[in-house]
């Protein structure tokens, strides 16, 4: 949405991150996500929990990244920061070249609305609200006009393969179908990145595979950047890169040579 505060307040991109004359947002070579020394401390009054203890990493546009680690290692905390649901206690987070770590709640809402699509383990569709209206919701907040909304909802439902379910309510759908609606909703504002927190955690293995193949195709064919939290290796195998967290530190960062064969 041109003219709204999120766009207006984005500073010009620094030359170090962009090639001369090239905007970072249009450059495939630049990192869509760049973290520098990200720390997150939960202050519980008496104790302080250090969930992230200085994480630095870059994710280039179009990459499919699996975020792995034991329970409590900080995966969700990191994903929430990547999704601008949360702010780092310290460190710098550049999203599409813009430092968003100091944004206000309203600015972060705009970033989530336009640049980020979320997929949750528990689907998180609006209850008692039709599939159509669920997919429409993000566009209401970005002020897309009605006719355009209709076009985009139809396109998104086609992409996820359930155009006939537009009028259904979430509780009338299977888990796999609900997750597809969630993906359609995540895609509808054409985000720069998709973030998924254990997207197959509530699905049986057949449906998990179906959803994973589908996410992989989105990444390959549409070039969507994907960051996915999982603790299952066979799910992580769909990704092209795997990051391992342990106790708030980045333990390892590996490329997955076999990920192409999975398709």
């Amino acid at each position: 949405m041109p003219g709204e505060e999120g766009d207006v307040e984005m500073p010009p991109l620094s030359p170090s991150l962009t090639g001369p004359g090239l905007a970072a947002t249009h450059s495939d070579a630049s990192a869509v996500i760049a973290l520098q020394e990200i720390r997150r401390v939960y202050d519980l009054g008496e104790v302080q929990v250090q969930a992230l203890k200085g994480v630095s990493l870059e994710i280039p546009r179009g990459q499919f990244v699996a975020l792995m680690g034991a329970s409590g290692s900080g995966k969700s905390t990191l994903l929430n920061i990547l999704g601008c649901l949360d702010r780092p206690t310290s460190g710098i987070y550049r999203l599409d070249g813009v430092d968003v770590s100091t944004f206000s709640p309203a600015q972060r809402a705009d970033i989530r609305n336009r640049k980020i699509g979320f997929i949750f383990q528990s689907f998180n569709l609006l209850p008692r609200t039709s599939v159509w209206e669920n997919v429409e919701a993000p566009m209401l907040y970005s002020g897309v006009l009605k006719a355009e909304r209709g076009r985009r909802i139809e396109a998104a439902l086609n992409v996820v393969g359930i155009p006939e379910k537009a009028k259904a309510l979430p509780n009338q759908l299977s888990g796999g179908q609900q997750q597809r609606v969630a993906v359609a909703r995540a895609l509808v504002n054409q985000p720069a990145i998709l973030l998924a927190d254990e997207p197959t955690g509530n699905l049986d293995s057949a449906t998990s595979e179906e959803i994973m193949r589908f996410l992989q195709r989105l990444n390959r064919e549409k070039g969507i950047t994907l960051v996915m939290v999982t603790h299952e290796h066979d799910i992580a195998a769909y990704a092209s890169r795997a990051l391992h967290l342990k106790d708030g530190h980045l333990l390892s960062d590996e490329m997955n040579p076999s990920s192409h064969e999975q398709a």
Binding site: A106, A109, R112, N113, R114, N124, P127, A137, Y141
Partner: peptide
Amino acid sequence: TREIGIRMAIGARPGH
């Protein structure tokens, strides 16, 4: 509360 959380996640500002 959960609906509020979902709406915020998909881009509802506090004002919305």
